[in-house]
Design a protein around this nucleic acid. Structure first.
Lengths: 231, 231
DNA sequence: TGACGAATTGACTATTTAATAAATAATCAA
DNA sequence: TTGATTATTTATTAAATAGTCAATTCGTCA
């Protein structure tokens, strides 16, 4: 009966009264939120346990101590964050097919820049809480920061800088400018609204997270970059 | 003797063994550092006291509790932060003399933008730790954030947006763009290196605080803005 | 000089919070 | 069914940290 029952359970997906993995996940989810909102020192294991509807002792059972929980949150997040930017860039002919004959015209350049901006905006929109969490690690000179950036932003940055450099040598991009600085500017323009929401709202009372604002932002950033790059 | 002695003290500036104001200042200085580095929850009153070479009890004597100390730090900082940006902008003919006949040429526009960028870069370079501190207040929807931004960034933002709007109506600035977005972009480009030092260093191993990088950054930002604004 | 008030000190308390340990209940495999 | 393993709960401990209090020292002024 037990074997049969467990089969039925698995088949009908009856949730068992006890499920370590599920509890672990709930704890990680709750911890992710709590760390993002309060920072590492401000986060309370009690609050995390309540939010996860679990006992505080389970935190220690599964993750050892608070630091362990923090590391687990980051580990999971970093693993989940494979460089999505790549996919978008791959589809841009000029970015993906550097080996082949790339069309060297401005529309293609614009497509590259737009893909870059879209990838960045999406990244920051999705991972703003994660960035807030990882800051604790970053201040401690932690390895997760490096790992995260290496996995996500760096490949995109490198491809774009490389491609822009090529285009610059071929005369499609204005000469005499440092394309790395241009990329940093794009990063900045994309990230700023998510980083500095509270400040920005005082300057300009508008729904910074709203689609309207962000759509306008995307156009603004692409146009700005193009104005800078085009000869 | 006492009166004479105190006169001598004041004259020669002999530091008295006990000086409430001086101690208060040392505590505030130490607290400012500690809050900036560790955040509110992570800051330790003990560490602050040690750094200030004072007793922890004095914190409570002068500021009541931890929250009071935090408020005192912010109050002092906000009061010390009068809108310096104004001064720089005043000196720019096109920004300061809006009433009079302003020269409507591109060099004048460039001067305005450059003054704007210089003011912003200086602000962020000087106040990066303060911004880190105020974030605790900002998350709590605190009044200090609003006060700080209102005192510092907002007047500059408003003047620049207003001036650019004028110039746009007069045809000096390209029509059809939202100058507020341009200003947000400039803010972003100026702030990013200070906000995201740890991230940026992974992308581009360079001394982000160094004069070389920042000088290049200033040129980059001004040129970018001009490329966007010029018709 | 002496008294008063402010600054300072050190010992102490209260509270919060992370961490542990032991007991109980569910699950799974043989 | 049974025994082992794992998940969960309850109670308790240990450590860190904010906050209090009374005693003491020092500067100032009558």
């Amino acid at each position: 009966m037990t074997a049969a029952l467990s089969l039925v359970k698995r088949a009908r997906r009856v949730k068992p009264k006890r499920d370590g993995e599920a509890t672990k996940k709930r704890l990680l989810d709750a911890a992710e939120q709590e760390f993002a909102r309060k920072g590492f020192a401000g986060a309370r294991l009690g609050a995390i346990a309540v939010a996860a509807s679990a006992q505080q002792a389970l935190v220690h059972h599964y993750f050892g101590d608070k630091e362990g929980l923090y590391q687990a949150v980051l580990t999971r997040a970093v693993e989940a964050t494979t460089s999505e930017g790549w996919d978008i860039l791959q589809r841009v002919p000029i970015g993906g097919a550097r080996g082949r004959k790339a069309r060297l015209d401005l529309p293609a350049l614009r497509a590259l820049v737009d893909a870059f901006v879209v990838a960045m905006l999406r990244f920051f929109a999705t991972h703003a809480p994660l960035l807030s969490i990882v800051r604790h690690d970053a201040r401690a000179g932690g390895a997760f920061t490096r790992e995260l950036v290496t996995r996500t932003s760096k490949p995109v940055f490198d491809v774009v800088v490389g491609t822009l450099g090529d285009l610059q040598r071929r005369g499609v991009v204005r000469r005499g400018i440092d394309v790395r600085h241009v990329c940093v500017s794009v990063f900045a323009m994309c990230a700023y609204p998510y980083y500095d929401e509270e400040f920005l709202t005082v300057l300009w009372p508008v729904d910074v997270r709203g689609a309207d604002f962000m759509d306008a932002r995307r156009r603004e950033i692409v146009d700005t970059a193009m104005a800078r790059l085009a000869p």
